[in-house]
């Protein structure tokens, strides 16, 4: 009986990820970040644009996350909720929000600080980024219980460490890391969406039931 309750609770938590939309949008964000780091690597180091891009990293990063969430919700309203139902999740607690914001700011500040003060450490940036992102996926995967998120954590680690060890560190390595993860997320999300659309027929034109 306990297992039955936990099964339904877990399945309901997983529902947000049933259609792969969050991964598709995350993939887009990662590709955008890949383009950002590629621009940084291509621009002259002391140029105004380079300085502005570096200074705006935290804003760009956090802004992408906020916009991404809104985009996922907007697509779900049109695609998912009419097919398999509408769910709103309990809002995160204030403490949880502060922790998430703090972690995001810390990561952004770490990247900017390393880029500005310790050029040699840039060689290991893909590995460090891969590790942080993999840790995030692992925590998320263990909470939601979906095996494909464990695979994404492994991919993140492999890309990050592989790029640093192959000598492709620095900003170009970061660009390749984010682009690689972006395509991986698009693949994962795309396959999940295809599977979902096969299982969940388009809604018929009928009025609500009860």
């Amino acid at each position: 009986m306990k297992d039955n309750i936990n099964y339904h609770v877990q399945k309901t938590r997983q529902y947000w990820h049933i259609d792969g939309l969050a991964e598709l949008v995350a993939g887009g964000i990662f590709l955008f970040l890949g383009a950002y780091f590629f621009a940084l690597s291509a621009l002259p180091p002391n140029s105004l644009l380079n300085t502005l891009l570096q200074a705006g990293f935290a804003l760009i990063f956090i802004g992408s996350l906020l916009l991404g969430k809104r985009l996922v919700t907007a697509i779900k309203i049109r695609l998912t909720f009419p097919r398999t139902g509408f769910v709103t999740y309990r809002p995160p607690t204030t403490r949880s929000r502060w922790i998430s914001a703090g972690l995001a700011l810390f990561m952004a500040a770490l990247v900017v600080a390393l880029m500005s003060t310790a050029p040699a450490s840039l060689e290991w940036m893909p590995a460090i980024t891969g590790l942080i992102v993999a840790a995030g996926w692992l925590i998320f995967a263990s909470r939601v219980g979906l095996p494909r998120f464990f695979l994404l954590a492994i991919a993140s680690l492999a890309f990050g460490i592989g790029l640093s060890l192959s000598g492709l560190g620095d900003l170009l390595g970061l660009a390749i890391y984010y682009a690689s993860m972006g395509f991986t997320l698009l693949l994962s999300g795309g396959l999940t969406l295809r599977s979902y659309l096969k299982q969940a027929p388009a809604p018929q034109e009928e009025s609500d039931e009860s």
Binding site: H8, V9, T12, Y15, G85, F86, R90, P91
Partner: peptide, 19 residues
């Protein structure tokens, strides 16, 4: 029904019907 609704803020009839 309780198990499902305890995990969320709210759910619509269609979701409950499917699950």
């Amino acid at each position: 029904i309780f198990a499902i609704l305890s995990a969320v803020e709210s759910a619509d009839f269609l979701y409950l019907h499917q699950e």
